[in-house]
């Protein structure tokens, strides 16, 4: 069962899970993460492969189809993955809220 015990996530995993809230293949994830982070984070192929393999094994994402023509697999987040993502978002919000309260007062 996915819960708060799985946070904090690495930055790469957080962005990968965010990307696959809609069906996306590997190259699409790389482009999406690059765009979302304004070019700051460019996922390396080995990192993405390792993360996807682990996320599939944990059941946080799943393969939804395999395009036989392009041989590209699409991935989508599962309900367990979404629960982890939400728990991570809550954690990040807490960090930002506490940081803002102290630094901006």
């Amino acid at each position: 069962m996915a819960d708060k015990n799985y946070t904090p996530l690495t930055e790469a995993v957080y962005y990968i899970l965010l990307s696959v809230t809609e069906p996306m293949h590997g190259y699409g994830i790389i482009q999406n993460v690059k765009e979302k982070s304004s070019g700051r984070l460019v996922l390396a192929a080995g990192t993405l492969y390792g993360a996807i393999t682990n996320l599939l094994a944990k059941g946080w994402i799943e393969t939804i189809n395999e395009d036989a023509a392009s041989r590209k697999k699409d991935y989508i987040i599962t309900s367990d993955g979404l629960a982890v993502l939400k728990a991570e978002l809550e954690r990040l919000e807490e960090l930002v809220k506490n940081g803002q309260e102290i630094i901006e007062r």
């Binding site: 293949h25 190259y27 790389i30 993405l48 393999t53 041989r71």
Partner: peptide
């Protein structure tokens, strides 16, 4: 083989 095809998908 999985790794290789994943690399191919990413133009590697």
């Amino acid at each position: 083989d999985d790794f290789t095809s994943f690399m191919n998908e990413n133009d590697i």
